[in-house]
């Protein structure tokens, strides 16, 4: 029973951290769906949101604001920063590059990544800033079933909860609101959408704003986990296989991909890692993604890629 207990602990830990990957991957999916841009800057946006939030919090608390007011104001400030970023990106990079091919757009978002990283660190500083929004202590569950119980991190539970709310919110936004419907129209065919009077640059701004807010949510969770620091930008690289496994265009896919990657890499690390040198978490997700792509080139939940000649 110990083995099963350990397995469950690893599995749950993996699934939970997978949800956190999904939080980053969601931002990618939003932008890819609506504008066909593969947004490499998502990791940098998480960093920017996190830095803005944590610095604002520190400043407000130091000036004697009560904690709840500081949190509300800090999140508001960070959201304004993300909105400004979204507007700048749409206005100066993505707008002028409309109709270019995917690779050019992808490279331009790498350029954006450099700018955001440089600017964020210049304005808000480049140290490690601890962020304490959620409890991070461990929790033991099912102690009756397994000796010692199963260790679950409370932060992971919070992360899963937030991800769930976020997905539900996004689904409602996409399905029920007028803007959401316009978003789907633009995603389908931006020229056709334009011709029926949907303001494309506004829609793209909304999409980048949504991605920025998702980044802010991801930043609160990841910032609590790791502290807000430069290495958060590497999350973007972690989120790529998640995206690919789930499918680039699917929001549920981002969640499912995150779960698969999170559970897969933890299990592989624990059961396979010791025999081949450890640290395989580093590449396991990518190899998994490669294997999934060989079977389903569009990912598990992606739209089928139909080519016409």
């Amino acid at each position: 029973m110990i083995a099963l207990g350990q397995f469950l602990e690893v599995l749950i830990g993996g699934l939970m951290s997978g949800v956190l990957y999904s939080l980053v991957a969601l931002g990618f999916v939003l932008i890819f769906k609506a504008s066909g841009v593969f947004n490499f800057a998502q990791g940098a946006m998480v960093l920017l949101a996190g830095l803005a939030l944590v610095r604002a919090l520190d400043l407000l608390v130091a000036n004697g604001f009560p904690l709840w007011a500081a949190i509300v104001l800090g999140i508001g400030f960070s959201a304004v920063i993300m909105a400004t970023t979204a507007w700048l990106i749409e206005r100066f990079v993505i707008g002028p590059l409309v109709n270019q091919d995917g690779l050019t757009l992808f490279m331009s978002t790498i350029g954006v990544t450099f700018v955001i990283e440089g600017a964020a660190e210049m304005i808000f500083g480049s140290d490690v800033y601890p962020l304490r929004l959620f409890p991070t202590d461990a929790w033991f569950v099912l102690e009756g079933l397994f000796p010692g119980g199963i260790l679950v991190n409370k932060l992971d539970v919070w992360g899963a909860l937030i991800a769930g709310i976020l997905v539900a919110g996004l689904a409602l936004f996409f399905q029920r609101t007028k803007t959401g419907r316009a978003l789907r129209a633009v995603a389908d065919d931006h020229l056709a959408a334009h011709s029926v009077g949907i303001p494309i640059s506004w829609i793209w701004f909304v999409v980048w704003l949504a991605a920025g807010l998702v980044a802010l949510v991801a930043a609160t969770v990841w910032g609590t986990k790791l502290g807000v620091q430069f290495s958060i930008t590497f999350l973007a690289l972690k989120a790529l296989p998640v995206l690919i496994i789930g499918g680039l265009t699917s929001i549920p896919g981002a969640i499912a991909g995150g779960l698969i990657v999170g559970a897969g890499e933890k299990i592989a690390e624990v059961y396979l890692g010791p025999s081949i040198g450890g640290g395989i978490e580093y590449w396991f997700a990518y190899v998994l993604a490669l294997a999934v792509l060989l079977v389903r080139p569009q990912g598990l939940f992606g739209e089928r890629i139909i080519e016409r000649v």
């Binding site: 593969f38 995917g102 690779l103 992808f106 690289l237 790529l240 296989p241 995206l243 690919i244 680039l248 640290g279 395989i280 580093y282 590449w283 990518y286 190899v287 993604a289 490669l290 792509l293 060989l294 080139p297 569009q298 990912g299 890629i305």
Partner: peptide
């Protein structure tokens, strides 16, 4: 032979991370 475009780009990252490791 099966994967194209940006999907392939991410697939080649597998080579990058595997050999780094």
């Amino acid at each position: 032979l099966r994967i194209k475009g940006l999907y392939l780009a991410v697939a080649t990252l597998a080579a990058q991370f595997f050999f780094d490791w």
